[in-house]
Amino acid sequence: MTGSRGPTDTASSAGTADEPASTDLFDDADERGHFFEHPARAAPVKPAAPAGDEKHYHGHRERLRTRFRDNGDNALADYEILELLLFRLIPRRDTKPVAKALLDRFGTLAGVFGATPALLQEVKGIGESVALDLKLISAVARRTLKSEIRNKTVLASWSSVIQYCHAAMAHEPREQFRILFLDKRNALIADEVQGQGTVDHTPVYPREVVRRALELSATAIILVHNHPSGDPTPSRADIDMTKTIVETARPLGITVHDHIIIGKDGHASLKGLRLM
């Protein structure tokens, strides 16, 4: 059904004898423009403002950079250090909420960098690219620590060994069994993960441990594994397995210097506890 249109009805684009066609059909300079009310023009679409006041967070970024430059990392909280890093990875966003969300989720900076890419991406603001960049930074830090013990007498650099093992294993979600193979000077020959297991168990085969040591011409080894629960207290199985490896290696001239258990907040040494 067709009905008559009221005076304000502008649905037709053709116009009538008494109304001009759409104003797009004549020049605004035409004098007819003085006698007819033009339909309101749509306001120009402005670009959406960036999330979180751009001017504000740009100024915030510069202030953080200045504090870091002038006073070093001790002048910044952990979330601010993480912010500084995220500035480069997420250049067009306020990264303070992202940094705080990462620390809330994973507890510490070590926890953030130790988290898997999949878990990192569960935090709002972290996509696949940023997650992989964080893991790359973690790998650089781990290799830096490893370089501190390579070609050095490991037993004389014990704190560096612990720092490296903690960075490499403390936040692994599954148990991991690692061996540091040493030469006759107790310098590091190789660092190998021999097995990965479940959240509370890793199968270890003493004969395979010794066989690999012989292949590498190692004269000593350090055993290392992690407890994903966070508690580095050795279990009865840890103690028994260590004694079996010691007894298997000794007749072949291979010394087991220690078995270190890594937890999120510390470590345990079976030798230090006199359990081997």
Rank of each mutant, 00 (worst) to 15 (best):
P97C: 04
L85D: 10
L102N: 04
D94F: 06
I90A: 10
K96N: 09
A101N: 14
L86I: 05
N74M: 14
N74H: 15
A75F: 02
E80A: 10
G107N: 04
G107C: 06
E83V: 06
I90E: 06
F87Q: 12
L76H: 08
T95W: 02
F106K: 01
N71K: 11
L82D: 00
L82Y: 00
L103E: 02
D104Y: 04
R105V: 09
K96T: 14
E83G: 11
F87N: 10
F106D: 03
L84A: 08
G72M: 02
Y79Q: 11
D73M: 12
N74S: 15
I81F: 00
L86T: 00
R105F: 05
L84V: 06
L102R: 05
L89K: 03
D94E: 15
L82W: 00
G72R: 01
K100Y: 08
K96Q: 13
R105K: 15
I90K: 11
A99H: 01
L86W: 00
G107A: 04
D78V: 10
P97M: 07
G72V: 01
L102M: 11
N71P: 06
P91D: 06
N71W: 09
L86H: 00
E83F: 07
D73Y: 08
P97L: 05
L76M: 14
D94W: 01
G107L: 03
E80W: 05
L102G: 07
A101I: 13
F87C: 13
N71Q: 14
L76Q: 12
I90H: 03
I81R: 12
L102T: 12
L76F: 08
A99D: 01
Y79V: 11
L103H: 01
D94M: 05
F87H: 10
D73P: 09
A77G: 12
R88M: 11
R105C: 06
R105D: 04
L84Q: 09
K96V: 14
R92E: 12
P91N: 13
D94C: 09
N74G: 15
L84N: 08
P91G: 09
L89C: 12
L76P: 03
R92S: 05
E83T: 06
A101P: 14
A77E: 13
A101F: 10
D78C: 11
L85P: 01
D104W: 02
K96G: 14
N71G: 13
R88V: 14
L102Q: 06
F87I: 08
D104C: 03
L102S: 06
R93S: 10
F106V: 07
R105Y: 02
D94Q: 08
G72H: 00
I81A: 03
F106T: 02
V98S: 03
V98L: 11
I90S: 06
A77Q: 15
L85M: 14
P91L: 08
G107M: 02
L102A: 15
A99C: 04
I81H: 07
N74A: 15
L82S: 00
P91E: 02
L86Y: 00
I90N: 03
G107K: 00
T95K: 02
R93N: 08
L85Y: 10
N74E: 15
D78W: 04
D94K: 04
L76N: 09
I90Q: 04
N71V: 03
I81E: 03
R93D: 06
T95Y: 04
L86R: 00
D104R: 11
L86M: 01
T95M: 05
E80S: 10
N74F: 13
L85W: 12
